[in-house]
Nucleic acid binder design. Sequence first.
DNA 1: ATGATGTGATTAATCGTTTTAACATTTGTT
DNA 2: AACAAATGTTAAAACGATTAATCACATCAT
Lengths: 340, 340
Amino acid sequence: MKSRITITDIAKEAGVSTALVSFVMSNKAKGSREYRVRPETEKRVLEVAAKYDYQPNSSARALRSGEYRTIGVVLSDISNKFYAEISRQIENWAFHHDYVVLFGSSDENPKKLSNVMKVFKNKGVDGMIIVPCEGSESAISQMAGSGMPVVLLDRDIPGAEFSSVVLNNFKASVIMTETLVGKGFRKIEMISYKTTLSNIKDRESGYLKAMEGAGLTETRIHRPEYCNYREIEQIVLDAKARNVEALIFTTYNMSLMGRKAFISHGLRVPQDCFFACFNNSDAFDLYEPDILYVKQPIEQFAVEAMTLLVKMINEPESAQSCTKIILQPEVVFSSSEVHV
Amino acid sequence: MKSRITITDIAKEAGVSTALVSFVMSNKAKGSREYRVRPETEKRVLEVAAKYDYQPNSSARALRSGEYRTIGVVLSDISNKFYAEISRQIENWAFHHDYVVLFGSSDENPKKLSNVMKVFKNKGVDGMIIVPCEGSESAISQMAGSGMPVVLLDRDIPGAEFSSVVLNNFKASVIMTETLVGKGFRKIEMISYKTTLSNIKDRESGYLKAMEGAGLTETRIHRPEYCNYREIEQIVLDAKARNVEALIFTTYNMSLMGRKAFISHGLRVPQDCFFACFNNSDAFDLYEPDILYVKQPIEQFAVEAMTLLVKMINEPESAQSCTKIILQPEVVFSSSEVHV
DNA sequence: ATGATGTGATTAATCGTTTTAACATTTGTT
DNA sequence: AACAAATGTTAAAACGATTAATCACATCAT
């Protein structure tokens, strides 16, 4: 039973000290004047390491150096398609940058979010990417305050000093509304919900701003109490009765329920009422080429967030100043393409 | 700048040795005769630990004990809805059992799968849950052979001695086919693809078996070369021309393309041709209450796999014998319910 | 009184790295 | 030639836990 081979084995076989092996393996400052290892020694060590497929023990490394090369990601729900896709991109980035990712879901529950963060911190992560939920500000604040690099994703907490990567939801909403106006619709309403989170609030103000800009004073934002199907259905039916020409749904789940209501009651797009939303779904692509939606730059979300986070990790002084990255939205019509 | 507090701090404050603190914290064999700590001492240690919110450093613990309390999960693609939902359940189970989960995607590429497994092993996981892909047998074999507990999920590799948790795909396919026969269809065909993976092969044999059982000799399994939309579309159109009464799609992606083809060419379900598949989609629920599909027991997948894996981790002797868990399928009609 | 047994707690080695400080050796400068 | 600076390399001390071995003491049967 040959057990795992260690740095000592390599050092012995290469005829050098463990320190040298460590220097070579973690080729810190390689190329700089600081890196002082004779090329032939380096070659010898590398050869031995390769021969035994030596990989430094990450626990030992983490224990000694305090670097984990692990990122914690807390989403509201990883089974939500949007977050699942972001997770995929984050994982991909991490894989290519020698990081490893822990995923957790908050269920939109601040207590759960706080617990998951604690578990991650305790487990040892160098930083966290968080999709904040309603009421999670203090927990996140505490975590960031304890020195943990944190980047908010998708949603920002207005007024709070966190680094974040979010879509320009305001602009997206403006473009979307203007597009609808451009198609000749005048009676446009929005279905949203009561929240303090930035992404939704920005979508609301974008709508109002664009309506005002178009000289349309008749605006309306519905904010159902529980956001369940019955409420959404009621709003849709009511809108139809009042001859609303277009409905904008601000969340993925509500837009799914909205589509269901449309279909159940035979509302056709675009003839009866136009349908616009902020996240695409297979369901829409498949059946309705005339839906307007915001194309989320999934990969960019992941890359920007990870890059920013890693920078904060590596340059603690930069971690103090908070950086807000705002991604450009793209508003498109459902492509009718099936992506597989 | 107060740094992380350690076991030594706790020991000092409680006036005991670090060993004692360790005993108390990891209350091994609590209750058994082995656990020899005076209750009042234990209480004192616990109080001090609570006071400082002490959490043992997991790197140090892992380094010394070899236990990571971390599971590696390698799926084909975490952004695939089915796997995203499984991930959610796995994460949930882990959270409640004090484990943490690393997720990775193989992209159905055995080389990538092998790399991700290596990264996970090197990072330190106690065991892995793997969705194998075509050609990954040797890599998984090697990993399992090196002593790493491994449980296959969703797909099994026929003939290989791996523990696994899979659906009874054969039975699902039989039920599905019988249901279609029961609805009066006789000309039923299947759209599958060339593979060695168990789940697909079982679906094929289930279909053939049920058809034979019903005395229907006219069977046909299509196996498109590249499984792209053009091929699927062609098969669907051809089937329509030949008055095929029902089509069974064996994979999620192909069923999406199939639906697309149905819709593009105005085929209605059930009037023109019936549609059956093995994974539900939002898209189907939303628009077609008459689709037949296999309801995958998502939570059971996760719970069974994790339970089995943890058992293998904790009882190395049991890890030798391979356990195959077969989950019961449920075949249902698209519910027309929107789940949010 | 003696040795055996049981109980509660401690000592110190160990896990596999990283990293600081020091040690040689070579090179460069005057 | 003498000393400084640069270049390679190493010894040894961490990092923060776990755990085998040991110890000190009390209890108890003989």
